[in-house]
C-alpha cells in the first residue's frame, strides 16, 4: 500500500487527528498568551523581578518534553488536560520574553513625551508601549506556535490525540505510512501557522512603523 492510497483510505482518521492537533496547539498557545502577556507587562513595570521570573521560565523550557509529560501524567492522569498543561507551559517563554523585551525596548523619549503631556501609566501602556511592542509580541507568539505544533505530537503518548497518535502508532507497528501521515501534516501545519501569523504581524503593524526602529 503506498502512501497516497493510505491517505485516501484513512482520510477521516487523519482529518480528525489534524483537527485535534490544531485544537491542542490553539488552546495551549492561547493559554500561554493569556499568562505570558500580562506577566510580561507586569515584569516591564517591575524590572527587578524580571531576572528571576525569566530564569524560571527558561528553566521550564529546558526540561525535556517527555519528562514533563511524565510528571503531568502522574499529576493529572491520562487525556487532554495534562497535555494542555505541559504545552501551555512551553508556550509561555517565547511570548513572555518578547513581551518583556518589546515593551522595555520602546524608546524612553516616547514614554517621557506621554508622561509629560498627561497620560496615565495605563494610557501610556495601551496607546504607546503595546502598539510599539506589538510586532515583538506577535513574533513571540509565532515562535511559540511553531514549537507547540511540533511538541504537540508528543501529546499522543498520553492519550491527548492529535497527529502524534498517528506517529506513535506508526512507530510501534513499523508502519511508515502512519508516521508520514502524522509527520507531513504537522510540518505543513507549522509552516502554515508561521506564515499566517507573519501575515497578521504585517497587517497589525501601523504604517508609521514600517521600516522604523522603535
Amino acid at each position: 500500500m503506498n502512501f497516497l492510497d493510505f491517505i485516501a483510505g484513512n482520510y477521516i482518521d487523519i482529518q480528525l487527528s489534524l483537527l485535534r492537533h490544531i485544537e491542542l496547539v490553539g488552546i495551549s498557545v492561547l493559554i500561554g498568551m493569556m499568562i505570558a502577556i500580562p506577566v510580561g507587562i507586569f515584569l516591564s513595570r517591575h524590572k527587578r523581578m524580571s531576572g528571576p521570573v525569566l530564569a524560571v521560565a527558561g528553566t521550564i523550557q529546558t526540561i525535556p518534553g517527555l519528562v514533563m509529560l511524565g510528571f503531568a501524567l502522574i499529576l493529572f492522569g491520562i487525556g487532554r488536560l495534562p497535555a494542555l498543561v505541559v504545552l501551555s507551559l512551553y508556550a509561555i517563554l517565547p511570548i513572555l520574553h518578547n513581551t518583556f523585551t518589546g515593551i522595555t525596548q520602546v524608546d524612553q523619549s516616547y514614554i517621557e513625551a506621554g508622561r509629560g503631556i498627561g497620560m496615565t501609566s495605563r494610557q501610556i501602556l495601551y496607546k504607546v508601549e503595546l502598539p510599539l511592542a506589538m510586532s515583538s509580541i506577535i513574533s513571540g507568539i509565532r515562535i511559540s506556535t511553531v514549537y507547540i505544533v511540533s511538541w504537540s505530537t508528543l501529546a499522543g503518548l498520553i492519550g491527548a490525540g492529535g497527529l502524534g497518535d498517528l506517529i506513535w502508532t506508526g512507530l510501534s507497528s513499523y508502519n511508515s505510512n502512519y508516521i508520514l501521515a502524522g509527520a507531513v501534516p504537522s510540518a505543513i501545519l507549522a509552516f502554515a501557522f508561521s506564515g499566517l501569523i507573519g501575515l497578521l504581524q504585517r497587517m497589525l503593524m501601523p504604517r508609521g512603523l514600517r521600516g522604523v526602529r522603535v
Binding site: 523619549s109 516616547y110 506621554g114 509629560g116 498627561g118 504607546v128 510599539l132 508609521g208 512603523l209
Partner: peptide, 28 residues
Amino acid sequence: VELRRTIGYVIQQIGLFPNMTVEQNIAV
C-alpha cells in the same frame, strides 16, 4: 496627570508617537 494636561510639553527627542498619524499625535 491633570496638571500635565494643562501644561504643554516639548522635548528634544520630539517624541511624536510613531504609531500615530500627525493628526492623531496633535489630538492626543
